[in-house]
Nucleic acid binder design. Structure first.
Lengths: 260, 260
DNA sequence: TAGTCCGCAATGGTGACATGATTCACCTGC
DNA sequence: GCAGGTGAATCATGTCACCATTGCGGACTA
């Protein structure tokens, strides 16, 4: 059943390498892989080929399959991101990703203000309204709030008019869910964040590019601040998330989060 | 000899799909691929697996290998970018990439100002000085100027302290060389650009994060303006670059451009 | 006409084999 | 004693034949 892309071989090996359990320079062989996972050499070869395409390993005759250093990895690939987010160093990874968000999302908001469809504009203000309702209600449903948050950012990125920004939608959703599930979110949303989200929605709906960019910059700056405050004080997050909470399985594709 | 990653099968198929020659929904078979390229089914399978990992195709029993829509592609992958940059729609692709630069590079400059090594700071000011010398000399060596430009941006991205930004170094170098080779550069560099590059170098060297960010934003805004001016007036660039100018072969890895 | 069933065509996966390249070790020659 | 070349061992690479699995699609039936 595993369609070779979701082969346990690929997944396990990828996680081992990105986690550092298999350090750079470590050598594997197809026979070894096949023996360990109980698969034939062909499937081991294909998994290895995928890993090679991700820049995690290089293979050559007589030398076997050597693990490459992290500076050779395709760190922008969704799979690599998911693996690293599931291993140690997740906080550092989260910080890098947040910085990327900080760079991209304001510009995406600007683009969305110029090009979003009417349906998207409507949905954005509806989401913002619902978020405010949930936030002001106090002990609201964290999961629903998260889903709305994700949905909003995905809508903005996908409506930005730039496919490269849209391609980051999956990454952003992983970051958002990771942030809450790692306990890096305040117990209930800050009023500032609520205001900023509402401002983004309204600005996009009104087609005000500058305001949308500014408001989105506010959102992600606030996020970054929270992450820095937590991350610098403790390497390990306060919440229960040592290594058994995979944060999120996959991220690519049409990110399954739906909302009103 | 081709190590399967650089297999002509993978390359040709990737280019055909990204160029639209094989539209979404088109169906391939392993036997067909093997027959066309004169390879066995196994190697065709591995190439197909790579393509599947890039999100270009999906394969299933009885259905064969179906080409996916461009919204499923890993558009951030260096190979996909290179393929699309070599086919039609290169101008649109260049615009998307430039917008991504616009988002990322200012923040990268900020990071570099905070964390670049002494050697990098020195090299940056040396590069800026040389660029000014070349630019003011008038009919200077375009290729050397381009190499310096690329080197500078790569240094900044790699010194930004964010591996995700560093991963975009290859992409940026492709964009830069594409820009000049497509005839989207002024015959000799604008004084404004020269000033901005010098300002970036000096700000990074001085550790002035805000100034570095501002100057880099100036650079990339100017770039964007030039691209929009050319791109909106004519879909096809003025230069001779219909479809036989591959712009640049590969982009990933340690981008081969060296300079003093 | 609608629903079910079966066949087929394609991938998915396995094992064995030949090939080619690279590294290591040994061996010769100066 | 040392350097350089030659050989062999070892691994990936490529190929082939084979069986299992799986969905699509047409045919058959009620």
């Amino acid at each position: 059943m595993p369609s070779a892309l979701r082969s346990p071989v690929l997944d396990t090996l990828g996680r081992r390498i990105t986690s550092g359990e298999l350090p750079a320079g470590a050598v594997l062989t197809l026979d070894g892989i096949g023996a360990e996972f109980g698969v034939s050499r062909t499937v081991a070869r294909e998994a290895m080929r995928l890993l090679e395409g991700l820049g995690l390993v290089r293979s050559g005759p007589r030398v076997g399959i050597v693990v490459l250093g992290h500076d050779e990895w395709n760190v922008l690939d969704s799979r690599v991101i998911a693996w690293r987010l599931a291993g140690p160093g997740r906080v550092a990874q989260l910080r890098s990703l947040t910085e990327l968000r900080q760079a991209v999302e304001p510009l995406a908001a600007r683009g969305a203000a110029r090009g979003a469809s009417a349906a998207v504009r409507d949905e954005l203000v509806a989401i913002a309204r619902r978020m405010r309702a949930l936030g002001e209600a106090g002990e609201g449903d964290h999961e629903e709030f998260l889903a709305l948050d994700i949905r909003m950012h995905q809508l903005v990125l996908r409506s930005s008019g730039n496919e490269l920004f849209a391609a980051l939608a999956g990454v952003v959703s992983v970051v958002l869910s990771g942030r809450t599930h790692l306990g890096l979110m305040p117990v209930h949303p800050e009023a500032e964040a609520l205001d900023a989200h509402e401002a983004v929605a309204n600005a996009v709906a009104a087609g005000d590019a500058a305001a949308a960019e500014e408001a989105m910059a506010r959102i992600v700056r606030e996020v970054r601040g929270a992450l820095d405050a937590r991350g610098s004080s403790a390497q390990q997050p306060t919440n229960s998330a040592s290594s058994d909470q995979p944060v999120s399985a996959q991220s690519s594709g049409a990110g399954g989060v739906k909302s009103g």
